[in-house]
Design a protein around this nucleic acid. Structure first.
Lengths: 203, 203
DNA sequence: GTCTATATTGCGATAGAC
DNA sequence: GTCTATCGCAATATAGAC
């Protein structure tokens, strides 16, 4: 059976680290929020940094799984694989509403222990998009004049920016209360993107 | 004449706050890096938070100026105004390489004193894009089925994500050493975006 | 305007009792 | 596995000499 104190700490730390960032959260704040003794953090995770690493790793784990699953679809076209990937992104964000915060936080203000974990994951994402875009150009689906590196950054930007901007945007433009406006956005954004990169002379 | 200590503190604090984030920088670290006495921070800025506010305000100042300038071009078409805006964005980032870090840092992990400053600026940017997209649809340049809110987020995402991802991306894909690959990216990304949102039946 | 010295508070970590 | 108590240190801020 799972340890209650350990699980509660992970749960509370995920939210606090996500919202305030690693440096702005103290072990005392964590222990109070989790209704747990301060020393439990050292006992279970070897200190604040260990707890942060555990949270970060747990948050990023579905990314690599998704990439594997999408790349298994070798038979499908490059465009179909990108579409599947975009679709999966929405599901991951729905399951882990704090994931994007960790990624953006580490990309913007890297911490000593978080940076290597993030780099490992993001490099695989870029690798996948890069390879798939190249295949798309080679097989005539995508424009020949496409700069692949730039187009890869554009795709990641257009797909993920929404999730970090969401709390902010919904303050400005009250978003329609759909059951799933997340995947709706991703579908919309990805359609805009595809229109932009597809070869106009393709069927 | 400008005060040397004050200027040096702003300069050093801009880089340190941008790279490590507000909470992870101490006043001692700042004073050592600026070769200035610790107490100067309280003397000139009323403490660490005052220094942060001063830096943040200085970093964001060109945004509102640019919006004003672009909106002055009332005569030009909505698409031309968006293009001009995208072009200006690249220039601002070139002049202030740390600006995007402050914006992303505050959006991801808002601080008590930074959040209101950021919100004021970003809401005006969204306002501009929203109005301009609506005009573009009304005058037939842009697709009728465009979701304006989503399209606004997509544009900001596609234009700005590159600048925060740059240090990371250039590690993975050594970017071509052009004199100005920044505005090259923005031009490329904006072209992709326009292809996606333009009305295909428009001239 | 700049310095030293210090006041005060909070930090992360742990020894040792239970 | 959980607790209290405390250690050692670094944080921000400031009083007061120069």
């Amino acid at each position: 059976m799972e340890n209650k104190t350990r699980v509660k700490l992970i749960e509370v730390a995920t939210e606090l680290f996500a919202v305030k960032g690693f440096a702005a959260v103290s072990v005392r704040e964590l222990s109070v929020a989790a209704q747990v003794n301060v020393s439990a953090i050292s006992y279970y995770f070897n200190g604040k940094e260990g707890l942060y690493e555990a949270v970060l790793t747990a948050q990023l784990s579905p990314i690599l799984q998704t990439l594997e699953r999408v790349q298994k679809n070798d038979s499908s076209s490059p465009v179909a694989r990108l579409t599947l990937y975009a679709d999966q992104i929405a599901h991951i964000h729905a399951q882990r509403p704090f994931m994007s915060r960790f990624i953006y936080s580490e990309v913007t203000n890297p911490t000593e222990y978080g940076a290597p974990i993030i780099e490992k994951h993001l490099s695989q994402v870029y690798q996948f998009i890069d390879v798939t875009l190249r295949e798309g150009i080679a097989s005539g689906y995508l424009r020949e004049d496409l700069n692949v590196t730039y187009a890869a950054v554009s795709l990641v930007g257009i797909l993920n920016f929404y999730f970090i901007a969401k709390p902010f945007v919904s303050k400005l433009f009250p978003l329609t209360e759909h059951t799933d406006s997340d995947s709706e956005y991703v579908a919309h954004a990805f359609r805009v993107y595809l229109h932009g990169v597809m070869n106009p002379s393709a069927t």
